[in-house]
Amino acid sequence: MSEKPVPETRSVDGDTRRQIMLMLLKHGQATASELAARLEMSAAGVRRHLDILVSEGLGESVDRRQRSAAPGRGRPAKAFRLTDRGRSHFGHSYDQLAADALDTLRELGGEEAVRKLARRRIERIVDGVNPAGGDEESIQHTAGELADAFDRHGYAATVTRAGAGIQICQHHCPVAHAAAEHPELCEAEHEAISNLVGLHVQPLATITGGHGICTTNIPLTPLENSPEERSGS
C-alpha cells in the first residue's frame, strides 16, 4: 500500500505568514486590505493568517481612524501589528552571546576596544555603500543604499522623506540587548551614517530606549546665503 504524499499547505502557509509578519515589522501596523494589496493576495486570505497570528499571540489588532471627506465622520479601521513575541521571531539568537562577549572585551581592553569592535562591525555592514557627493539627490541615494544594507543584515530598514530631512528607520534590531548594555554599537552606526552622507545626523528614537523603532534623521540643511545676500545688497 503506497503512502500518500504529504501536503505542502503547511509550509506554504508558513512562508506566507512570515511575509505578513515582515510587512507588519517594516510598516508598524497595517490593515488586511493594505497587506493584501502589497502581497497581491485576497483580503480574506490575509485575514485568515492574521487571525492565526492573533490567536498565537504574535499579532494584535488596533483601531486606526480612517480619513473621511466629512469632518469628524471617519470610522475606525482594524489594523494589525506585531506583539513583542512576534517581533522576537526576527532574530535575537546571538544577542545575549554578543552582550557577554562585549562585557568580556570591555573588562580586558576597556571602552576603546569595544568602540573599535563596533566600528569594525558597522564597516562590514555598510561595505559597498557609495558616499554622498554633497547634493540632495546624492544624499538621498546614499541613504537608500544604507537602508538596503541594514535591511540585508536583519534590521528591517526603510528610508523616507520627512519634512526637510531624510529618515532611516530600523524596525528591528538583531543586537538590541547587546546595544542596550553597550551603546558603542549605536554610536558606531550613527557615526558611519554621518560619514557616508557627509552630514551631522540626529538619532530621534531607539529600540533600546523603548520606542520600538530606531529612527535616524538626516537633516538636509539649505545652502547658506552669500555675504552680499545676507547684507541685503
Rank of each mutant, 00 (worst) to 15 (best):
S93P: 11
Y94G: 08
D95E: 00
Q96C: 05
L97Y: 07
A98P: 03
A98M: 14
A101I: 08
L102V: 15
L102M: 15
T104R: 14
L105F: 07
L105D: 03
L105G: 03
R106V: 11
L108R: 12
G109M: 06
G109L: 11
G110M: 08
G110A: 11
G110D: 02
E112C: 05
E112G: 08
A113S: 13
A113D: 09
A113C: 07
V114C: 07
K116S: 12
L117V: 08
L117I: 02
A118E: 12
A118I: 09
R120D: 13
R120C: 03
R120K: 08
R121I: 13
I122C: 03
E123T: 14
E123N: 13
I125Q: 00
V126E: 03
D127F: 01
G128Q: 06
N130L: 04
P131W: 07
A132P: 02
A132N: 02
G134T: 04
G134E: 06
D135M: 01
E137N: 04
E137T: 05
E137G: 04
S138W: 02
I139G: 09
Q140K: 15
H141D: 05
T142F: 03
T142E: 04
E145W: 11
E145T: 10
E145L: 14
E145F: 13
L146S: 07
L146R: 03
L146Q: 03
A147I: 10
D148H: 12
D148P: 03
D148G: 13
A149W: 05
A149Q: 04
A149I: 06
F150K: 15
F150L: 15
D151M: 14
R152E: 15
H153M: 14
Y155S: 10
Y155V: 10
Y155T: 10
Y155H: 14
Y155Q: 12
A156H: 11
A157Q: 02
A157N: 03
T158E: 08
T158G: 06
A162E: 14
A164P: 13
I166H: 01
I168G: 02
C169P: 00
Q170S: 09
C173H: 04
C173V: 05
C173R: 06
P174R: 05
P174I: 06
P174E: 07
V175Q: 09
V175T: 11
V175S: 09
A176K: 02
A176I: 00
H177R: 09
H177T: 12
A178R: 01
A178E: 01
A179G: 00
A179H: 01
A180I: 00
E181L: 10
H182P: 06
H182I: 11
P183D: 07
P183G: 05
E184L: 10
E187C: 04
E187P: 02
A188V: 07
E189H: 07
H190V: 06
H190N: 13
E191A: 15
A192N: 08
A192T: 12
I193M: 13
I193D: 06
I193G: 07
S194C: 09
N195S: 12
L196V: 08
V197F: 12
V197S: 11
